[in-house]
């Protein structure tokens, strides 16, 4: 169970609260949507759950224990811009192996061609990079996935294909997902329930 208990965040001691008193749970294998207008703190909340940001108030728990500070984090985030999530000076095979060695079948299902692995990030399109970033995050130690506008930069076909594969994978392995999006149609497609911020 991934839990946020009374999580709040603000910039500086006296800044306005970006996120305040949020309680949220995602069960293994469950797909929860997070919806809200821009500026509502969706991304901030996603970053807190993924351990990128320490909350000012409250805490995040995975299966009852606080988020671990070292080692492989069981909660993995996928962001909107894949080109920021990969080292521009590394070939993509190295980027992928940093997390784990995804099986051929998964790479195939995500539409990743073997030839891409030898290339550098600037030689691939955003859609191609995002598939690699997704493959990287789906390792066996990942228990929860936070997808923050994961497909907003992608065309409709790539978006549908990517979601199909990720949903299949997560269902099979009992990975819980938090899907952050402003796209109501998308959320109603993939989520079993949706929370509004």
């Amino acid at each position: 169970m991934l839990e946020a208990r009374g999580v709040g965040h603000r910039h500086g001691r006296n800044g306005p609260w970006v996120v305040r008193e949020v309680d949220l749970t995602v069960a293994p294998g469950e797909v929860v949507g997070l919806f809200g207008p821009s500026g509502a703190g969706k991304t901030t909340l996603g970053n807190i759950l993924g351990g990128y940001l320490a909350p000012e108030a409250g805490a995040v728990f995975v299966d009852g224990a606080p988020l671990p500070r070292r080692g492989y984090l069981p909660v993995q985030c996928i962001h909107q811009h894949p080109e920021l999530a990969v080292n521009p000076r590394w070939p993509l095979s190295r980027t992928l192996r940093e997390a784990w060695s995804p099986p051929e079948a998964l790479l195939g299902a995500l539409g990743i061609l073997p030839g891409w692995l030898g290339r550098y990030p600037h030689e691939l399109s955003g859609g191609e990079l995002q598939r690699l970033v997704v493959a990287r995050a789906l390792g066996p130690k990942t228990r929860y996935l936070v997808a923050d506008e994961m497909t907003v930069m992608l065309d409709a076909l790539t978006q549908a294909r990517l979601w199909r594969t990720v949903m299949d994978h997560c269902r099979e392995r009992g990975v819980g997902m938090l899907v952050i999006s402003h796209d109501v149609a998308l959320l109603s497609r993939v989520c079993s329930r949706t929370i509004s911020l």
Binding site: G108, A109, L110, G111, L113, S125, G127, D155, A156, L157, T158, Q159, A160, R161, W163, R164, D183, A185, L186, S188, R189
Partner: peptide, 22 residues
Amino acid sequence: DMWRALPGHGFDPGPDRAAGPT
């Protein structure tokens, strides 16, 4: 195929022929 892939329509990723390069 693009039309059918929209979340508001079929959300259909289309025939998975080789999942080839775009």
